[in-house]
Design a protein around this nucleic acid. Structure first.
Length: 166
DNA sequence: CCCACAAGTCGCT
DNA sequence: AGCGACTTGTGGG
């Protein structure tokens, strides 16, 4: 039986992120939960396919780059599970570079559903790979902060590091 | 299938 | 600043 996914951690100055991979790519990235994470380290890492270790290096580099406010050169392949609408939104989000922002309305327009602004918010919240898929760079039309599943404080801090003023 | 909700937005007071 | 109307995708009953 093939491993459906592999779970690895990324240590950053902000804490330990948790990354999950399928046979196709990165499926999920979670913020440090404060608590000790699953006892994943050695055992999983050792029987982890070389392919995935390579992706993980890319994940690690990209994540650290963004946390430091720099644009990553390369991303790992993503394997995002979601509805067609959600994937469209996430794809649009990936076009926002470090230090840039868009409104929920602009995203809605970019995917051809100009009135689905509220649904776009929902899709952002359902984003399984925060930071790499920059849901934190989406603000409300009036320039206000909007929401964030990982906590507004975290969103503010991410934006601040990228040099964005609210 | 119907109903309620959401990380929005716009117009009016 | 506050409030209501409008909208659409999603998840639960």
């Amino acid at each position: 039986m093939k491993t459906p996914f592999v779970e690895l951690t990324v240590k950053t100055d902000d804490g330990e992120f948790n990354a999950r991979y399928s046979e196709t790519g990165l499926t999920e990235l979670s913020f440090p939960a404060g608590k000790a994470k699953l006892p994943v380290s050695q055992a999983t890492r050792q029987r982890c396919p070389t392919k995935i270790l390579g992706w993980h290096r890319l994940t690690e580099a990209a994540l650290k780059a963004i946390l430091a406010g720099r644009q990553p050169k390369k991303f790992p392949p993503l394997d995002l599970a979601g509805t067609v609408f959600q994937k469209n939104v996430w794809q649009a989000l990936r076009k926002i570079l470090v230090g840039r922002t868009k409104s929920y309305g602009e995203i809605a327009q970019a995917i051809g559903r100009p009135k689905a602004v509220r649904a776009v918010g929902g899709a952002c919240g359902a984003n399984p790979v925060p930071v790499l898929v920059p849901c934190h760079r989406v603000l409300a039309a009036n320039g206000k902060i909007g929401g964030f599943s990982g906590g507004l404080e975290r969103k503010r801090r991410l934006l601040a590091r990228e040099g964005v003023k609210i």
